[in-house]
Design a protein around this nucleic acid. Structure first.
Lengths: 119, 119
DNA sequence: CTCATAGTACGAGAGTCATCGTAGTTTGAC
DNA sequence: GTCAAACTACGATGACTCTCGTACTATGAG
């Protein structure tokens, strides 16, 4: 029912929630999926923004698109087009302002768990 | 399919995940439900352990049971019976050891959001 | 024993979610 | 224009989840 077909013909803009629209529950839900948590961890250590294609995820391309959309709509990442690629970055500043320390502790927790479980 | 019918006749024990079995994704998922986040917030400010009945949640009794079970099975809370009541406490120490700072930042984030949205 | 209280088990319904494949669009390179 | 690469839209499917009501069990008070 979302008007995806109304995307402008050459429009390269994507919708992002404003900071005041970001909901903690949605952020936690977005982070609770293994594939999405993995994406966020990769973005967290990346110096540059990354294209969706550079992630080597254990799911299909369409599923990858789905997960990136969930991340974007939850407010965790920002996305923009560059050529044929769709670049993603963590919305660190917005998140830190809204939920101080949250992203950092989740990333630390994920690192610990990966180490613990032999990641 | 879980063998709930094998509960001992007068057994008052409940199954809890050992610390090494607690998974970050499950914890985040447990926290991503509004009702459960509310329960956790109440437990966080309680000085004593609380009975399920003392929460005044906007859902039925059976749904309440369901949410407490999700919280317990994710490793977020510990539960034990006392008389007819089932008492719950946050597993603060276990969580802090596994995921330092995580619970605190989630609670802070929830407080901020509640204040921001007029909670 | 009787009864009220607290919680559970079970089954069901509605909704959401993760996943996929196929077909299509958009872009840049040649 | 042609082509490949990157991503999207759509529809489908199976799984999971939140919710409930009803019937049940366990405990303690009287």
């Amino acid at each position: 029912m979302t008007p995806r077909t109304q995307t402008p013909p050459t429009g390269r803009e994507l919708e992002h929630p404003a900071p005041e629209e970001i909901r903690l529950e949605e952020v936690l839900h977005a982070l609770s999926d293994p594939v999405r948590l993995r994406i966020v961890r990769v973005l967290a250590v990346a110096r540059e923004d990354l294209a969706c294609s550079g992630f080597d995820l254990p799911v299909s391309k369409s599923t990858t698109t789905h997960h990136f959309r969930v991340l974007r709509e939850s407010g965790l990442i920002h996305q923009c087009y560059r050529g044929t690629a769709k670049m993603s970055t963590l919305r660190r500043d917005d998140l830190e302002r809204l939920f101080p320390g949250l992203l950092g502790s989740v990333l630390t927790a994920a690192d610990r768990q990966a180490e613990r479980l032999g990641g």
